[in-house]
Design a binder for these strands. Structure first.
Lengths: 208, 208
DNA sequence: CCGGGACCTGAGCGGGCGCTTAGCGAGCGT
DNA sequence: ACGCTCGCTAAGCGCCCGCTCAGGTCCCGG
């Protein structure tokens, strides 16, 4: 779970773990629809239609429309956290681990920007319990990045006056990639990852 | 329009330019509701209720619910652009102008985070014409920041390998403040502005 | 004291929403 | 060959949405 190929690519088909097939097709359709129009502007009829089913079919696999969002959000956050953890547990100094972490985290947010957009920006549509569960995952994400930065400061590699504030800014920067990234734009996910890794190293004062 | 007090504080009451009074109350109510729940999850009954009016009163001052969002978005973008222009036209070298620009831009996004959230994240709910108008304003915003960074590079003050990419990242970072800023959090808008100005100067390699 | 316009309300329309229910038909163990 | 189960659909329920409209209230010039 922390091997190199897991880290860099993850699973080829992002939703392979969702079964049966009809449930996965509905979930993929929901991701697309939520990303395009937002949760509240998406109708259950639209989701079912994209999956080639009647509106009622949705309720065989999911109790409510909100459960779809919850499942998407949970799986997406798990994936993002796994990517970050793999980088944080890797070899090398704080600078290299931070660089790898940002590069892979950003690459995921760019390549899977449809999913990431839903995961990162539709949180408020969740009910209190589901939202609390997701927020706990976000706190873990924050702790991982803060840990790397603290390591770098302790080792004298970084110069960071405000560790919590800088952590917040770094994560905000990476996550927001999902909002503006455009497949038809001039940059590949790899290029954005490399650019952002460089920018973040500058932010923490990793003089090289 | 580029004096110091205009730049730092703007108008005291943000929506003073909206008249008559009832129209302003409705608009303020809409900003709050859109920021809390999102455009699509907000009902016209909710907006009118917050403004202390009946649902029908809304349609005396605005043709549709979308016109409310359009007006909010337009005014907010104008204000954000004015803040940035004031900083870009200021005195001093590129580093100082970039610092002032980020500080005041971020301070606005933090202090007016309710408005900024609507302005920055509900764009997709607008119709094609309104959206095109707003996107033109965003391109101006981008051009202003890119201009300052280019000046710095040309003057040898900055070290920036990818000017458009860095501009995008800087703006993304500043704008995303509106998403996470919390009035009850540990940081004042001023403090966030100062932190971000420092981080951005590091991103452009403005050796101190 | 009256007439008129600006502003607002109560009631409600047409429609689309999330979700439910009754029942159909293909696949399969026996 | 049969009947059970599973996955699905057609139809539609009840609700609340954005929005409308006839009419009431109040202020103000004459």
């Amino acid at each position: 779970m922390s091997t190199a190929e897991e880290t860099s690519g993850g699973e080829m088909r992002p939703w392979a773990e969702v079964t049966p097939d009809a449930a996965r097709r509905l979930l993929v359709a929901a991701v697309e629809a939520f990303a395009e129009r937002g949760y509240h502007a998406t109708t259950t009829r639209d989701i079912a239609g994209r999956a080639g089913m009647s509106p009622a079919a949705l309720y065989i696999h999911y109790k409510t429309k909100e459960e779809l969002l919850h499942r998407i959000s949970r799986i997406g956050h798990d994936k993002a956290l796994a990517i970050l953890n793999a980088a944080a547990d890797g070899e090398g100094g704080a600078a290299e681990r931070l660089s790898v972490a940002v590069r892979s985290f950003v690459r995921w947010h760019a390549a899977q920007h449809t999913t990431a957009r839903v995961v990162q920006y539709e949180l408020e549509a969740l009910g209190p319990d589901a939202r609390a569960e997701i927020l706990a995952l976000r706190r873990q994400t924050d702790a991982v990045v803060r840990g790397i930065i603290q390591d770098g400061v302790a080792a004298g590699e970084f110069d960071v006056p405000d560790v919590p504030g800088t952590t917040l800014a770094v994560l905000s920067l990476c996550v927001d990639v999902a909002r503006w990234f455009n497949v038809n734009g001039p940059r590949t996910p790899d290029e954005v990852g490399a650019l952002y890794a460089d920018l973040v190293l500058r932010m923490v004062g990793a003089g090289k």
